[in-house]
Amino acid sequence: MSAAEALEPETILSVENITLSFGAVRAIRDVSFDIRKGEIRAIIGPNGAGKTSMLNVINGFYHPQEGRIMFRGAVRKQMKPHEAAAGGIARTFQNVALFRGMTTLDNIMTGRNLKMDKWRTSLIPAMFYYGPTQKEEIKHREYVERVIEFLEIEAIRKTPVGRLPYGLQKRVELGRALAAEPDLLLLDEPMAGMNLEEKEDMCRFVLDVNDEFGTTIALIEHDMGVVMDLSDRVVVLDHGEKIADGTPEDVKSNQNVIDAYLGVSH
């Protein structure tokens, strides 16, 4: 690493002048910000500010009408979700989006799908199973077991996730995203609807993921306490526009942000 790079942290992703509309609804208006390698970047804002839409743009689920995205130095205009996944972006959802009929183990195993060898898991070897497919399954099972251990969900390994309480479902969903060994992890309100204890656990996991694996995290969260504790930098959206960007302290004292949260009309 050169001296210049050490001084100026590397940007893993930047969104530039993104505008996204749904018919007459302008969900995002000319928003730009960047995410640096290894940081925890919070995206906050009142309901309907466009936070979830922003994550959907980043992982290729929505295609913005204007603007561009730089990911790892390359410009992209349009990208399919599975391409974003292959590029190292994983995410969790505001409303848990697990595969309800499958067990915890199988759900997290699906997170490994892009890491699995294409040939070894293709139709003919998979029909025989014993041999290449089993080898591949066991190899990835070992990784998945590490994720399960990390998230302390050993006891629910074989439970269909549809039967789990909400807090645990959110944890399994994080596990599925972690199994992909992402470079950039997008978390959409990972602590929503949790009690205090569950929230504390989740905060610990987010910090540990960031520390131990060096994973870059973009996090949407409503709980300001959590945001202040976890994040390195915060971007604030309101009515689809960026109204502030900076350290948690900067943002907290920003007049625009205070107005937005108190509902002062523009």
Binding site: H82, A86, F93, T110
Partner: peptide
């Protein structure tokens, strides 16, 4: 959940 399936690859 086909949408989540697509988003994870």
């Amino acid at each position: 959940m086909d949408i989540a399936a697509e988003l994870i690859g």
